[in-house]
């Protein structure tokens, strides 16, 4: 172990945290916005719409993200003229856009399934009850469906956030300078991969640790009714049965 190298590369690797978080954050936000309609389409009664949305989910869930990234980044280069003609090239020209596009399409597919699962977990009887007392649709969604669904979906969504933080490391393959790419740059000058990759790994681990804790906190807030009362219960003195007088 070369501790000097570790001390030197830690601040340089930490510079990549911004980029990693920005990639993960923006694709998670855009992906979530996309995932809601996809989940709703997935639950729709219209067969065609359902096939389309579940086809999208299926395709993006069963192919590797690395292939998707290369397909979007280098693949779009093959159609530069066509993309220029429709005025989209300025977007595909940026490796940043391509990485976010791939990550977003990916997380939207997964997130839509998490949302769908959450919505389906709402007991039908509750919706019926809301209707029977005359609650309007949106109010029922706001007061009933959404709170129940989000509690159900939160743990799975927490895993999705962690997966996305990890996935950003693949952006290093298309010239984006995030943590993994910086690690490779340092290694190309020092030829000591183990130390540098270990610190990079530790950084990802800490990021994900924070994510896990944050999700646990949100879960805690959202489920006050499930909280176990941790206070020591008052001692109930059982009055002993009176001893019959001899």
């Amino acid at each position: 172990m070369d501790f000097e190298l570790i001390a030197e590369s830690l601040p340089r690797l930490a510079e990549g945290i911004d980029e990693t978080l920005l990639l993960a954050g923006s694709s998670l936000v855009i992906g979530f916005v996309l995932a809601v309609p996809i989940a709703l389409l997935n639950l729709s009664n219209n067969g065609t719409v359902r096939t389309l949305s579940s086809g999208y989910v299926y395709i993006f869930r069963s192919t590797p993200l690395l292939v998707q990234i290369f397909l979007i980044y280098y693949g779009s280069g093959q159609f530069r003229a066509e993309l220029q003609a429709v005025g989209l090239w300025f977007l595909f020209r940026e490796s940043w856009f391509c990485a976010i596009l791939a990550l977003t399409l990916n997380t939207a597919a997964y997130t839509s399934q998490i949302i769908r699962g959450g919505l389906q977990s709402v007991p039908w009887g509750q919706i019926e009850a809301a209707r029977s007392i005359g609650m309007p649709g949106f109010m029922a969604f706001r007061r009933l469906i959404f709170p129940i669904a989000i509690r159900q979906a939160l743990p799975a969504y927490g895993n999705e956030i962690i997966l996305m933080v990890k996935s950003t490391s693949l952006a290093s393959t298309i010239t984006i300078l995030e943590i993994t790419a910086i690690a490779k740059k340092i290694i190309s000058a020092t030829y000591q991969p183990v130390e540098v990759f270990l610190i990079a790994g530790a950084i990802y681990l800490s990021l994900n640790f924070i994510v896990t804790r944050a999700i646990m906190l949100v879960e805690f807030w959202l489920t006050p009714h499930l909280r176990v009362d941790r206070r020591i219960p008052p001692v109930v003195r059982r009055t002993p049965a009176p001893v019959p007088a001899p």
């Binding site: 990890k166 950003t168 990802y204 994900n208 640790f209």
Partner: peptide, 12 residues
């Protein structure tokens, strides 16, 4: 193993 990217696991 769930907290660090698979790519890094492979490199390491």
């Amino acid at each position: 193993l769930r907290g660090i990217p698979e790519l890094l696991v492979i490199y390491l």
